[in-house]
Amino acid sequence: MNIVVCIKQVPGTTDVKISEKTNTLIREGVESIINPFDMYAIEEALKIKEKMSGKVIILCMGPPPAKEAIKEAIAMGADEGILLSDRAFAGSDTWATAYTLSMGIRKIGAYDLILCGKQAIDGDTAQVGPGVAEALGLPFVAYVRKIEEIREGYIRCDRMMEEGYEVIAMPLPALITVVKEINEPRLPSLKGMLRAKKAEVATWTAKDLSAEPANLGLTGSPTQVMKIFSPPQRPGGEMILGEIDEQVEKLVNRIRELKIV
């Protein structure tokens, strides 16, 4: 079973600062990490490989330093990695990103399953995984919290819902995106780290992908950013302390004061 895992390198914090001048993320001084949700995708892929053999291939679109993220995945046990990197990819929205990744996957060719994290912690859109599936014409299930069964040409998984879950079966090849409930990602091993250090990570450009230039990067992105701004800080809540009766009284008074009812 050959598995492609799409990963993204993101700033290693959720407390990102936004430049007042340019209204974009300040990335300087912020360590880059593998998008935490993608770690679950990597772990799940490694687990499937341990059970069924085959290969785990990491696919990442990003600037050259994103190779580090791929190497980290190799240190955990992934077999190989490919970086999609080209100036032409810059400014991609979720649609262009999904298109580019799908072209990478087409070039990889032999795959049974594609795994993605449910969303990236920097953009938080959760669109790229399903977008890749659409671009490849594959069935997909998002928000998978458990793979119940997987075998040649078949997968059955639990999709997490607000309340409860749905069991969905589909033929392979297919794509799933996973949530954090699915597993606990492993740490790297020393043998893996040594292998990662030596590993050659291939870089594929727009040309290598035979991608349609009009579909790439800023040009290929239908999303138009009208304005970027930091939302105003939400004021902290108000704690009402005291005995139950006191609390109730204070609360009722506050509600009256604020004319909520």
Partner: peptide, 19 residues
């Protein structure tokens, strides 16, 4: 050596995250 630094990095990660 690089390899020894790697051992420290890995042991550190195990210690901090898991132990």
């Amino acid at each position: 050596t690089d390899e020894q630094k790697m051992i420290i990095e890995l042991a550190h990660q195990v210690a901090v995250e898991k132990i």
